[in-house]
Write a protein that binds this DNA or RNA. Structure first.
Lengths: 116, 116
DNA sequence: CCCTTACTTCGATGTGGGTCGTATTATGGG
DNA sequence: CCCATAATACGACCCACATCGAAGTAAGGG
């Protein structure tokens, strides 16, 4: 019986009760991180880290994902060598009602003023 | 007939159409500025600059008022030597629906978790 | 096994912004 | 007129953070 070569890579996520507004605001104030959130919300499905359209290097992008994850905005999980990202929409809504939708809507409106 | 000694002091305010999300987010990400916004929203009436409870010097507070005003979050006007502040609630709601209420609610919830 | 793919880690860098103290200006009262 | 009050302007300081490139690690395919 083959023992697993390595432990499957896991990712830690904070409970939303232990995330405060300051953290979320700091996560959402960066334009690149808002792009990530906006693209996740727009796509409606999980996206791998490499598929985001952002004007920064991959190492910088890794940093942004960390910030978003630690602020409880996104959830991440590995599938093989690829890391996927989801918005923690429902949990965030419970913790900070209306906040994420308002920001996402404002992002969308800036990208395409007609759509809103 | 006494001519006015000086022109009455006026304050410039941006039109909300020329304020972008980045500016508003940057304005609201600072905890001191959120205290200002929160106290304004909680009080329900205009407040003079000196009546806010914030843990910074008056010169720093002046800076925060400037940032909030330039981001279109507050409106300021002089009455004699005193400067008053109002939230531009309605205009902001039109520009970024739901954003200010969500932030204000989150602030209030942090200060007093029971009230929400 | 090696190689590629996908992402991370680390260290260095630069800059923006929050902070303060001091000096200054504006208004109103005595 | 002079002074007190309210707030601003200015300059300096400091630190957090976004950014990058280069090197590292982990999974999977041939």
């Amino acid at each position: 019986m083959a023992r697993p070569r390595t432990t499957p890579r896991t990712v830690d996520h904070p409970d939303l009760t232990q995330v405060d507004l300051q953290q979320v605001m700091e996560a959402l104030v960066d334009p690149v991180r808002r792009m990530v959130v906006s693209q996740l919300a727009g796509k409606g499905e999980d996206m791998s880290c490499g598929t985001f359209e952002v004007p920064v290097s991959t190492s910088t992008l890794t940093h942004h994902f960390n910030v978003l994850r630690e602020a409880g905005v996104i959830r991440q999980y590995y599938v093989g060598v690829t890391k996927f990202n989801t918005l923690r929409t429902g949990e965030l809504e419970e913790r900070f009602p209306g906040l994420l939708p308002a920001v996402v809507a404002a992002c969308a409106e800036e990208v395409d003023p007609g759509t809103a």
